[in-house]
Write a protein that binds this DNA or RNA. Structure first.
Lengths: 353, 353
DNA sequence: GTGAAAGCGCTAACAC
DNA sequence: GTGTTAGCGCTTTCAC
């Protein structure tokens, strides 16, 4: 899609020209005073009057600090970098949103560098390395890595040069701190909701059984059941591709079981979407004949299916914010709570249970 | 969601310490030579041998240029800024992807600043102003504004200080260049596809009739029809909320018309999703009994509906790339093609026609 | 090809 | 409270 431009020599940017020196002169004070006032330094009694004079000068001259120069002199950039495949594969965008918002609140800037969707384990680490390198050239104070789906990853070696936090993924070969969803808790809460509605025979549409999401969610489901003295019927647990079609097929198999369940726990919303079709095709009604609960809370699906899908949300935004908070603690030299922080996956009631 | 941290004083970032001076010494050359080699300067005959020596030194020392210092000295940052609500409201994310990729190709960095979803016309311009200001403090060389949906916007005044390009929106009160989708062409291609399949009686599920998307798409539809000597039956054009529910209701009204159409043009995919339900409820089959065509190509919907939805795609990625290309031309002092560039909305064949 | 020198806009000591 | 003095790491003349 994108086409490489001929390298265009950019014309030097027209600076506003107004520097801190100009402000100082205009206000009739020292540059030091201006610097102090503008950076809100403490322990420096500058009279309210001078302060006001300086601020006026700033206004009148239209002075705008030069963030780059400040970073150079102070050896502090106020930038974090996030390298992520999310830009490329629009899922889990809310991680970026959460991180951005939190960074903004902390008066920090988030530099976003795209990486390839390919797992860093693979041969495709080139882009990821390049992104990290670029970020480091900008002298970011900390690094965030975010994945579209929960998994183990390998991070470029140079990430060790600054504090680093992983979001929605974890360090497959080291001890970098990470923020991940509490899949197990999510699975538990989903099935608890089903139990509460009186369902005891529950079918499960499973993901690829080896990924952390599947492992955790299923574990949680079993926990909830056994707490109620029940267990999963292995014949009612079927895996499929993580798509609507996969969900459709899996649902067909479950629904055509001689002893059909009264509820379906779909391990993601896309599969639930397919399950809806299978259910409707059989003339069954949701939730009267069969209850459905999903996972992921993909707005576009969950909120638009009819009936709207009750599902467990992945706390992307919160994870993003927490990632930045953790990074802030690290760069401030503070200890962090734990190597791996689990974030709750809350139940979102809609109309399918 | 995000919670404000207590302002953490960040510990000065541990620099790698290796500067250009070190490289020069290590290679036994002047710093000037190093600078020339690293920035790939032309018209400067440096022997292959020295060049190699310098590169080796860079490797051995693990030297990493300081982008900030370079920007300060050269008065050229190689950064563009994009302020957008897309981060906040995850629609049209591909604009960012397209822009990012193109920027990356051009060896430039894209700083993303979030703005509020609120239209800049409203009172909520605060965040947008702040974002622009922050970007300018970073001395970005150009500014991009991107919207989630096609509309007129007002851009902060300070945007005039650097070249600026609007993406998926246009300057409501000025002459800033913009990149927008060719809505009319999209409407035309959709209806042409329907005509080609033999449909002559076509229902339209319309959006809010005043927005550019509705105006353009409908105009295109009329064009295609009149080219075939046909016209739209006003009774078959019904507006609804841009949601699945809105689409459902509109579809009901159209389908229950005594002289039912054989095809439905839904002005967005969400509404098509609702229309599907209305159609299925009536025991009709897509596309045998009634063909459906959408608009937007929202993957999650279009690719997962059953049958998969034929729809017209919004060229977000291309628009993003084109925005950066246009900006590159502007910052290089080149003339640009036109104040407003239209980007094609291609038809995406799936199975609903 | 080199080296010196000036300067980008700012921070941070330090003596006043 | 102020002014001075050093840089931060790099680019860019310019004379050699």
């Amino acid at each position: 899609m994108a086409k490489s431009n001929p390298p265009l020599p950019s014309v030097p940017v027209r600076q506003r020209g107004v520097t801190m020196n100009d402000v100082a002169k205009h206000a009739g004070v020292s540059r030091t005073a201006v610097s102090f006032v503008l950076s809100n330094r403490e322990n420096t009694s500058i009279s309210e009057e001078t302060r006001a004079r300086i601020n006026t000068a700033v206004q009148e001259l239209g002075y705008r600090p030069n963030a780059g120069a400040r970073a150079l002199a102070s050896r502090r950039s106020d930038w974090y970098g996030i390298v992520t495949e999310i830009v490329t594969a629009p899922f889990a965008v809310d991680i970026i949103k959460g991180a951005q918002d939190q960074a903004w609140l902390d008066r920090r800037f988030l530099l976003i560098a795209p990486s390839d969707q390919a797992d860093a384990v693979g041969p495709n680490q080139g882009l990821e390395d390049a992104a990290t390198e670029k970020l480091l050239e900008q002298r970011v104070e900390g690094l965030l890595y975010a994945a579209t789906f929960h998994r183990g990853v390998h991070v470029p070696a140079s990430a060790n040069e600054v504090p680093t936090v992983l979001i929605n993924c974890f360090d497959a070969d080291g001890k970098l701190p990470s923020i991940v969803p509490d899949e197990r808790g999510g699975g538990r809460v989903a099935v608890e909701r089903l139990l509460q509605a009186g369902h005891t025979r529950i079918g499960v549409i499973n993901l690829d059984p080896v990924i952390p999401a599947a492992v955790g969610r299923l574990e949680g489901a079993r926990e909830a059941l056994s707490a109620a003295g029940l267990e999963l019927d292995p014949e009612l647990v079927v895996s499929g591709y993580a798509t609507a079609d996969g969900g459709y097929e899996a649902a067909c198999r479950i629904l055509d079981h001689p002893n059909r369940p009264t509820a379906l726990f779909c391990l993601n919303d896309r599969m639930a979407m397919g399950a809806y079709d299978a259910i409707k095709e059989r003339g069954l009604t949701i939730p009267a004949d069969i209850a459905v609960i999903g996972f992921d809370n993909q707005e576009l699906i969950a909120a638009y299916l009819r009936p709207k899908l009750t599902t467990v949300a992945l706390p992307f935004e919160k994870m993003g914010a927490l990632g930045v908070q953790t990074l802030a603690a690290l760069t401030a030299g503070q200890p962090i709570l734990a190597d791996q922080q689990l974030v709750d996956c809350p139940l979102l009631e809609r109309s399918s249970v």
